[in-house]
């Protein structure tokens, strides 16, 4: 394989996953978790890392064994690989980041059914070599993460007045009558933000409804 690690083709894989076919704003996948875990930046970050790791990892594993997987049971095999990775992450979180895992509750487990992961396996890893698959998983994970982090930052600042747990809105502002926005802490707040992000991303990238 004479291809450079970051040849122009591979760069395109990165750019597609992150921007042009961003899993959230373009494919509208993974919305459920994007709404559920973004009340604080911390949980959004952990969820992003978790999903990026699972997508990239399962992409590589499936890509490595893609030629050996019997086609009748390929979905089950993919699911098994994804589940194994997700459960491992969940166990690690419980052991070393207990607070975060309590907040994320079922959503780490639900990465298993996250359409982004299965979507990348079926659409990409089953037909591409490991390195390309890894890049694809990474890019899609990063695209998902970017959206989650933006929403997480906005929701935490306006909903709780903090960022990563530190107070960022000074007490003098509250003394003037400012109050935290309760909507931002509820799922609908994330829904509106998501809408705005999709709106902005699509108007920049020139998306056309087909």
């Amino acid at each position: 394989m004479g291809e450079a690690l970051l040849s122009s083709k591979n760069q395109k894989i990165l750019k597609d996953g992150f921007w042009d076919t961003n899993p959230i704003t373009f494919q509208i996948l993974g919305i459920c978790s994007a709404l559920a875990v973004t009340t604080q930046l911390k949980t959004a970050l952990v969820m992003s890392l978790g999903l990026t790791f699972v997508t990239a990892g399962s992409n590589v594993v499936i890509s490595l064994i893609r030629n050996f997987i019997p086609s009748q049971i390929r979905i089950i095999v993919q699911l098994t690989v994804v589940s194994a990775l997700v459960i491992s992450i969940d166990q690690i979180l419980r052991a070393y980041m207990f607070d975060v895992s309590k907040q994320l509750s079922v959503f780490v487990g639900l990465i298993i059914t996250n359409c982004i992961v299965m979507g990348r396996l079926e659409a990409f890893a089953m037909g591409n070599p490991p390195w390309k698959s890894f890049l694809d998983g990474l890019a899609n994970g990063a695209g998902y993460s970017a959206v989650l982090i933006i929403i997480g930052i906005i929701r935490e600042i306006f909903g709780s007045g903090t960022l990563l747990g530190y107070h960022v809105i000074p007490a003098s502002v509250y003394a003037q009558g400012y109050v935290n926005n309760g909507m931002m802490v509820l799922a609908p707040g994330a829904f509106f933000l998501l809408g705005i992000i999709v709106w902005i991303q699509r108007s920049i990238s020139g998306y056309k409804e087909s």
């Binding site: 050996f68 019997p70 009748q72 049971i73 089950i76 095999v77 098994t80």
Partner: peptide, 8 residues
């Protein structure tokens, strides 16, 4: 298929 599934 069986062997593969068992290994996985």
């Amino acid at each position: 298929t069986f062997v593969f599934a068992i290994i996985v």
